[in-house]
Amino acid sequence: MSTVEQDFVQEPLGPRLRHEIATITRHAEHKRAACIDALKLVQKRFRFVSDGHLAEVAALLEMTPAELDGVATFYNLIFRRPVGRHVILLCDSVACWVMGGAAACAHLCERLSVKPGETTADGRFTLLPIVCLGHCDHAPAMMVDEDLYGDLDAARLDDILRRSR
């Protein structure tokens, strides 16, 4: 992590985010039930959940940090380590595998000079394998942040990478 990023994640949640989290817990039957939503709000602002933020959220939800970390680390879509500006979720399940998913992965690794799970040197992309995205009739498939892409081939991958600044 660079110094700039460290400063960024050491910044506290701030009043607005704390207020947003308090609001969603009001609709929940028990505060802890809102923990995934709360962690996603943190991620939306800071891209991942740092130790400091985790402790702050835990206090708001009346959970211990260890309890909340147990939940946070359980899920595929909650990031406890820094990620790039764009997160690529590349499907590695069976339908995509049959349709050339391994080739798509090799192509992305080569273009981005990363291995699955890593972030590019310029901090632009993190490449993560993900379980079946339910887009099997357009395999191979992936998501870049919230956008879904199917029928991937080398040219289409290059085009998507180029457009994700």
Binding site: V94, V131, C132, G134, C136
Partner: peptide
């Protein structure tokens, strides 16, 4: 929570 690999009907 459609996550059974190869399934895309609920989407």
């Amino acid at each position: 929570d459609e996550m059974e690999p190869g399934s895309f009907k609920d989407r």
